[in-house]
Simulated scan of single mutants.
Amino acid sequence: MALSTPGITLPRSVAAAITTKIKDSSTIAALSPRVPQLFADDTVLVFDGASEAEVVAEGAKKAAYEQSLTSVTAKRVKIQTTTRVTNELKWADEDDQLEIIKRIQEDQAAALGRALDYVVYHAINPKTGAALDAGYKKLSETATQVTAGKDALDNFDNLVSAINETYDVNGLAMAKTFANQLRKLRVAATGGRYFPEIPLSLNTTSVEGITAATSATVSGVRATEPTKVLAFAGDFNLIRWGMVRDLSAEIIEYGDPDGTGVDLKNTGQLAYRTEATLAYTVLDPKAFAVLKSA
């Protein structure tokens, strides 16, 4: 008996494994200190902690601060990826229904991770490269803007300097182009590298003691319009994201599920589809700076 086609809700342990794999391709997941969790969509009250101590003379009046609270509502994002394969794989799946998960999770979970970066950084649909509607805010536009010059080391310093007077810098997300520029920098007197922690693969985990991640998603390589983004730096504690709905896998045997005009049954194919709903919010975009090429 062939594996039935209704949607299969992934067990919690498998969902957790896939969520962990997202870190392999998402700089946001890699730099956020919070391990992704299944949580309900919510509204976050932001307390900015504006008070400072006052020195007062004995018997003098004491001043106060008016503390305001702002709210930020998490944005829900439904994402899916559909992969067509020959229907011969269906028989391999009969031995164990979770075999389908093993086959799709590496490729499709990586796609889900890339989608997280594309949506938060650029408000772009990674499948088409087109911009999402105005309800999606681009961190690449709301963050403090820094324009790159010819000197990569100056660009790195200016990026961090743009925000470190008021916020902690605990994360650096780099496009591969910028990571490679930093990797090539050498000390004139010794020939040693300025950033030996950046390897040839560019997959660094830290730069000058700050947690770092490198991915093509930072520059939005799939965008139809160039983003010019080279790097983000800032307090990645202030990006909140997680799962609103469990990941689910579905096997589709009939019809044209992806609108390509090719019928699955007629061509001897199956479609494997993974869907999820994420929610994210950037509590304060000014806690981030973005470096862009001129």
Rank of each mutant, 00 (worst) to 15 (best):
G171K: 02
D96F: 13
L89G: 08
L38C: 02
I210M: 15
K62T: 14
G149D: 03
R114D: 08
I28K: 05
A17G: 15
G191V: 06
L247G: 09
S219L: 07
T204H: 07
Y121Q: 01
I18L: 14
T86E: 08
F156S: 02
K23Q: 06
T204V: 10
R193T: 03
L247I: 14
V35L: 10
Q269T: 13
L270R: 07
T128S: 11
V72D: 04
A63F: 09
R193C: 02
L153E: 10
A134H: 13
L185V: 04
A289W: 10
I124D: 00
L182W: 00
Q145Y: 03
A30K: 06
T83V: 15
G234R: 00
D168W: 09
T177A: 11
A148W: 06
D96L: 09
R84N: 15
T267E: 15
K21W: 14
D41C: 10
T86Y: 03
D256G: 09
L38V: 11
L31T: 05
Y121I: 00
Q181L: 13
N266V: 04
Q105P: 06
S13G: 12
K21N: 09
L69F: 06
D284L: 00
I124W: 00
Y118C: 01
E58R: 09
V218L: 04
G268E: 08
A50D: 15
A276I: 08
Y118W: 06
V160A: 12
G192R: 12
T19C: 15
D93P: 01
L283Q: 03
L283P: 02
W91G: 09
E208H: 12
N266Y: 13
E54P: 14
Q181T: 09
A287F: 07
G113E: 00
T166F: 12
A115K: 01
T142D: 01
D258A: 11
T166E: 13
G149S: 02
R222C: 06
K137W: 03
I252T: 12
L172V: 13
A57Y: 08
F232L: 00
R114Q: 10
S201F: 10
L139S: 01
V244F: 03
L270G: 03
F232D: 00
S26L: 07
G171V: 03
D42E: 14
Q105H: 13
G129Y: 00
K228N: 15
D157G: 07
G7C: 11
A74M: 11
S68M: 10
V187R: 12
E225P: 03
V169M: 01
L132T: 02
G234D: 00
Y136M: 08
P257S: 02
K102F: 11
D117H: 03
K127H: 11
D246W: 06
A63E: 09
D41T: 08
L159V: 06
S13L: 10
V85A: 13
V282A: 04
D168R: 06
L159S: 01
N158L: 11
T205V: 14
D263G: 08
A233Q: 07
F288H: 07
D48Y: 13
A148T: 12
S68I: 10
V119R: 02
L202S: 05
T227S: 14
P11T: 04
S215G: 00
V35W: 11
G209V: 12
T81R: 15
K292P: 05
K75E: 05
S51H: 12
A57M: 15
R193P: 04
R245M: 08
